[in-house]
Design a binder for these strands. Structure first.
Length: 195
DNA sequence: AAAATGATCCTT
DNA sequence: AGGATCATTTTC
């Protein structure tokens, strides 16, 4: 069952937790790939020094974050990789959730081909890696996840006691915000990017 | 096991 | 100018 707009247009920390265990589905010309979300990070708008939209900064890039929830926010990092975020909360609240790792579920051969490795653990255990495996590029920036090429499917919620909560990765530049416990992952899952 | 390095280009 | 990364190589 495809997740609808109402799922995304809620409190970002709630969405970041509930995204764990859900399926990310990619339909592309060369085939279908599916991954289960096992690691997320919340980036919460104007008051989060780690967020692109800190202090409400509006540029061509951040504009989609100010729109309605349920859209893709994709940007390039270090000239070579992409990071995939899901815009959350309602229009005017520039908040999002970064997907950091997936557990490969379907289309493994296609993922291996795109990634150039056959080590299943390493296919999607990092934000840049999962974008390569799922063929997510900046062309997907702004895509509505309520449509058919890139979307999420419901799945049983992960029990509260199986959700681990830590500070976010690589945001040491963000001062006090660097210690906010806004990273979530599934306890014991083998596909999490790092413990 | 951890740390250093280089690839490489969009955004400001 | 510099960065929400990755793979490979180098060092303890």
């Amino acid at each position: 069952m495809k997740l609808k707009r109402e799922f995304y247009e809620r409190d970002t920390l709630v969405v970041a937790r509930e995204l764990l265990g859900k399926y990310l589905v990619r339909e592309s010309a060369d085939g279908k790939t599916i991954g289960k979300i096992v690691e997320t990070e919340a980036y919460i708008g104007p008051h989060d020094a780690a967020a692109h939209t800190y202090k409400g900064r509006r540029t061509d890039r951040t504009e989609v974050a100010f729109g309605r929830g349920g859209h893709a926010y994709v940007y390039m990092i270090y000239g070579m990789y992409h990071c995939f975020n899901i815009v959350t909360n309602t229009a005017g609240k520039p908040e999002m959730v970064l997907l950091r790792a997936l557990e490969p579920i379907e289309g493994l051969e296609l993922m291996k081909k795109r990634r150039g490795t056959s080590d299943i653990r390493k296919l999607c255990n990092g934000p840049g890696k999962l974008c390569l495996a799922m063929d997510i590029t900046r062309l997907d920036h702004g895509t509505d996840l309520c449509e058919d090429r890139l979307y999420l499917c419901d799945n049983a919620p992960v029990p509260e006691e199986d959700i681990v909560c830590t500070p976010r990765i690589n945001v040491d530049y963000a001062g006090e915000a660097a210690s906010y416990p806004w990273r979530f992952y599934i306890r014991g899952n083998r596909f999490v990017s790092r413990k």
